[in-house]
Nucleic acid binder design. Sequence first.
DNA 1: CTTCCAGGTGAATCGCAGG
DNA 2: TCCTGCGATTCACCTGGAA
Lengths: 381, 381
Amino acid sequence: MGAIDTIARLGRATWEDSRLALSDALPLDQIVMGDCIAAMKALPDKSVDMIFADPPYNLQLGGELFRPDGSHVDAVNDDWDKFDSYAAYDAFTRGWLAQAHRVLKDTGTIWVIGSYHNIFRVGAAVQDFGFWILNDIVWRKANPMPNFKGTRFTNAHETLIWASKGEGSKYTFNYRSMKTLNDELQMRSDWEFPICGGAERLKKGGVKVHPTQKPEALLYRVLLACTKPGDVVLDPFFGTGTTGAVAKRLGRRWIGIEREPEYCAAAVERIDAALPLDESALATMQSPKAAPKVAFGKLVETNMLAPGSVITDAKRRWSATVRADGSLMSACGQVGSIHKLGSTLQGAPACNGWIFWHYEGADGLKPIDELRQTYLLATQP
Amino acid sequence: MGAIDTIARLGRATWEDSRLALSDALPLDQIVMGDCIAAMKALPDKSVDMIFADPPYNLQLGGELFRPDGSHVDAVNDDWDKFDSYAAYDAFTRGWLAQAHRVLKDTGTIWVIGSYHNIFRVGAAVQDFGFWILNDIVWRKANPMPNFKGTRFTNAHETLIWASKGEGSKYTFNYRSMKTLNDELQMRSDWEFPICGGAERLKKGGVKVHPTQKPEALLYRVLLACTKPGDVVLDPFFGTGTTGAVAKRLGRRWIGIEREPEYCAAAVERIDAALPLDESALATMQSPKAAPKVAFGKLVETNMLAPGSVITDAKRRWSATVRADGSLMSACGQVGSIHKLGSTLQGAPACNGWIFWHYEGADGLKPIDELRQTYLLATQP
DNA sequence: CTTCCAGGTGAATCGCAGG
DNA sequence: TCCTGCGATTCACCTGGAA
């Protein structure tokens, strides 16, 4: 039996892919079940626009760990995270990075996520292959696991590396979308998100399906920042398909590679249930003139107000659609921030969008400011 | 002329250093002016308690950079940051890390700070030398320089690596000091500080003396977390002496190595002006681990808890009788110390008996730890 | 229906002295 | 070097049941 045992096919997305000359050679919107290096070898040269990789971290955990209350910590203890030595891990890393460099378009970028256990080795290898690091990004966890023994600092972040194919390569960076998403300030290299939990966390019989499922908000920001609608995103360590679910939501094509059948099954079910946003929600802000002015984007990113939602004023005289980067589009095509569009529609010199715009709550229209309060309550100390 | 041209001697500190057998062989509280690898070779094996290293970042900056208003950005453009290739930088890194590993005590730790340009290569080398990474720390800059061209995320952080000499090595971590410093919550791996500016930033004729002077607050936290008063801190890339100034302030000994005479001169002047904290200020930062231990038997002996008393857990699921020698006996005849019996009854691997067991106080159940506190208050000066 | 509280848990390289 | 025993050690968030 070969390394690639099965192709798990999902229903083809409905949008056109005629722009992609290579599309027939690519298993678009599908999971390739098998070894990631072998599966990548089957892909053509320079065929994908972005790679998002969440490789094993090589944690090298020791014995059991208990909390102060005596309960047991369910740590990562899977075969796929076991390597005999740094050399073995480096060989594995170079194996998949070589294929990643080959299949990435010259205008593409690669993202890799890791922790201090592996990220330095991976980062050095990324540079050695000629990738050009554009940023390292810190995912600050809002709710990390404490250090129970009091022996170190709370390990409260993970690191992502973002790199272009080489020095001087062109690449996609949706600067305006990121600025919009960040309250009209440049998006920084430190991002804060909660770890994946609640309804988003995939479970089977009450047990988590994957030990290290990533939050969708993280992938949302990555894909929104560095791809265009229709771009092809490859995830060689697909797991339970966070990349695929977000790519589908954002109108990007995706290819997943995953070895474990149970992860594949969970991913198929999950992505089938994901709803793509419509086109008006996807259009992201390109003009620097149309500038949303608040952290409204945070509500969109965390799905408190999904892209594509329609919001109105208190008397339903005007309505607008929420777009992926936190900008609004009115019924007649005008575009702007919640404040700007509110003032434009009313013909007023200024408008507080937080009070002007309302969403359809469980019991009637409510100002979006309530969502902001909820968000603040949930995230502030 | 040798690699080490000059020793810049500062006034000896006034405290005793008789505890340090090696002190006569070490240039304590001095700057060694010269090449860092050559200078480290002159230090004895296993002679320093901590190393803080801020090596050249190998920034590989391109042409000139201008702000949107046309003003010029004064970037790092010094000879000491120029390397021909990754290989050359790696060779340099391995050269100084080899010496660092040799001169570090087995109970010491090393800190290295860097950016995405160099930190991955340095981190991989740190692991290859056998150092054991304990944490990576993110310094989030409160006021980073924006990305003027809008082509990337604002590079708003730097990364520090903290490592012990090897897997399983003992090391100093002042857990309680860090928790106190962080409002009684565990100190996390993401630290926020402003970049170095204002009166702290060394200038000569209005021009900054060093392009990458680190904030003293950063070193303060590092030294407070991982050294004890009197410990020896080596900084092989001393620059303008931030490490020395903070070490002096915190009652730590220091050794600086620096190649550039003008940096040395600025550092001498700066450290001479730094005022050490007095002993009482330093003492408040000590760990309560040094607090005297109280045997449970002491409470029995002094009749604070009479033999024959019955104690229970917080929910009264288990109970035990206190015996004359300070051991406990459970209702079903099991016998052991407060810790041992607590773990046995719960089926847990360990148990802190002081918190687990409760006695019947005037107003309800109270942990026996309160009796210990009372005992300490009554017996300590 | 809302609020409160107890319980569970997350990519974790998680102790140390003394015999 | 191994074994034993003391005793130090947790934060934010989610869920479900009780009040």
